[in-house]
């Protein structure tokens, strides 16, 4: 997407461990760069108004809504999308948590939920309370309203990552 005569900005971004360099128009949003230029369609466009969080990716270790950043703002950044979570064919504990606990129904919000939880669980470094998980995913909407199992999946993952601390839910 570039109109004739439109400015192009050179960016270098590391996505899921691979370095890319492209020239992008200033108004290209990061989510479109990820989906349309890099072809990583696991990151979704939900509301396109910064509300739903389906487009959440990790940028320099923090969850961000990629529909609310211009691609040029990611120059020099390290990005992880949902495609970059599994390693050597093994799912990340958060992904496994969603699979094991029926943490998705239609699945549209799932990548965003997972990336937000990735930031949150890396930050708390322990098993959080249910209330803390619910607050962490405030910026992610599930239109199927399947929040109970999403929260359950997060707690399951936290237990995998940091141990039970008494266990159970």
């Amino acid at each position: 997407m570039s109109q004739q005569g439109e400015q192009l900005v050179k960016i270098t971004v590391k996505v899921n461990g691979r370095t890319y360099t492209h020239e992008v128009p200033p108004r290209m949003l990061l989510v479109h760069y990820i989906r349309d230029v890099l072809g990583l369609t696991g990151t979704h466009v939900g509301c396109d108004t910064s509300n739903c969080g389906a487009c959440t990716v990790i940028m320099n270790g923090k969850a961000v809504k990629s529909c609310t950043l211009f691609a040029f703002m990611a120059d020099g950044a390290e990005i992880i999308t949902v495609e970059g979570l599994a390693s050597n064919g093994k799912l990340h504990p958060i992904q496994e948590g969603f699979r094991e606990n029926h943490g998705l129904q239609c699945g549209f919000c799932t990548p965003g939920m997972i990336m937000t939880l990735y930031d949150f669980l890396n930050r708390v470094k322990r098993k959080p309370s249910e209330a803390e998980v619910r607050r962490a995913i405030e910026g992610n909407l599930c239109r199927c309203t399947g929040y109970v199992n999403i929260v359950r999946s997060a707690l399951w993952a936290a237990e995998r990552m940091y141990g039970g601390g008494g266990g159970g839910r």
């Binding site: 910064s50 969080g53 959440t56 923090k62 969850a63 961000v64 809504k65 609310t68 950043l69 937000t116 930031d119 949150f120 962490a136 995913i137 405030e138 910026g139 992610n140």
Partner: peptide, 8 residues
């Protein structure tokens, strides 16, 4: 806002 908004 939310976690993502506060990050940016």
């Amino acid at each position: 806002g939310d976690l993502q908004v506060r990050n940016m």
